[in-house]
Design a protein around this nucleic acid. Structure first.
Lengths: 153, 153
DNA sequence: GCGATACAATTGACTACGCAAGCAATAGTA
DNA sequence: TACTATTGCTTGCGTAGTCAATTGTATCGC
């Protein structure tokens, strides 16, 4: 029952580490700005996007949420006036989520402390080399996992 | 608005990577055994504990859940007969969570595929050296973060 | 042009948590 | 002994997310 494979160690560290980190960072962000981590990331993606807008489906993919999760996330941001809707001329099924000027202002304001908090949190634990290592390693988790879900052998 | 600090890169990778990994692994575990990742980890902690039992408070700390989260997690496991309650002789406030024989059997059965899935998932992406690196790095996230929450300067 | 199929988005019902409040038992203090 | 904290646990309520079903629009084969 006692496990030893490095994969298992990594898995446990991932579960615990992410919970701890997200818990701390999110609490700070909520306390300081009334935004959750996903609110922030969502607005950030919009801010970086062409014309400050994205299809909901693309937002879902990048945030790793389902379509309905995005609908509900955006509901909240729309209520606050930080995000608005816009129709797509070439495909009437899609509704863009657009970051408003207020949303951009809010994002900029929140960024000031949030980015500093993030850097403080990570730089207290890692050197910049280690941060690059970590980012590189974690990035691979996102990629396809043929082994896991298509066991056709 | 566009960010470049390695800390931010690491943060994004952590958010996305964990979501992707937990999503995949959890879906597999639920499909194969009707257990969530937390169900599994909880039973695993109990299995490894002295007399296969733990105080709910200790379980909460290790799983990074609140006390109420643990109560509800255990509710489900108790309903299935995998976990039972036991009083503590020396302190009548505490109720132990005890892994039953059925629970241990269920855990062993689930372990067979789950551990293999985990190894497949991670070993498809990393060498064993990288896994050790990753586990070591992630482990630091869990430690105290004096910088973040006591900004007394 | 027309049906079958696919896709974007929303909605209702549900789950898994957290937080705050409350209860019971213990520990500290006088 | 009594009075006050503190601790372990549970419960009501709120929130963030999922899944399954639905609607409206596109697109493909013919």
């Amino acid at each position: 029952m006692r496990e030893q494979a490095p994969a298992i160690e990594a898995w446990i560290s991932l579960l615990r580490g992410q919970s701890a980190a997200v818990g701390a960072v999110n609490a700070q962000l909520v306390a300081d700005h009334g935004l959750t981590v996903n609110d922030f990331e969502c607005m950030l993606l919009l801010a970086r996007a062409e014309e400050r807008r994205l299809r909901r489906v693309d937002l879902a993919e990048q945030l790793i949420l389902t379509a309905s999760g995005v609908t509900r996330l955006l509901d909240g941001l729309e209520k606050e006036g930080w995000v608005d809707r816009a129709a797509c001329a070439s495909d009437r099924r899609v509704t863009y989520a657009v970051l408003t000027d207020e949303g951009l202002a809010k994002l900029r304001e929140a960024s000031k402390t949030h980015v500093a908090d993030l850097r403080a949190f990570f730089e207290a634990r890692y050197t910049s080399e280690e941060l690059e290592q970590l980012a590189g390693l974690l990035g691979r988790l996102h990629a396809d996992a043929p082994e896991l879900d298509c066991s056709v052998d």
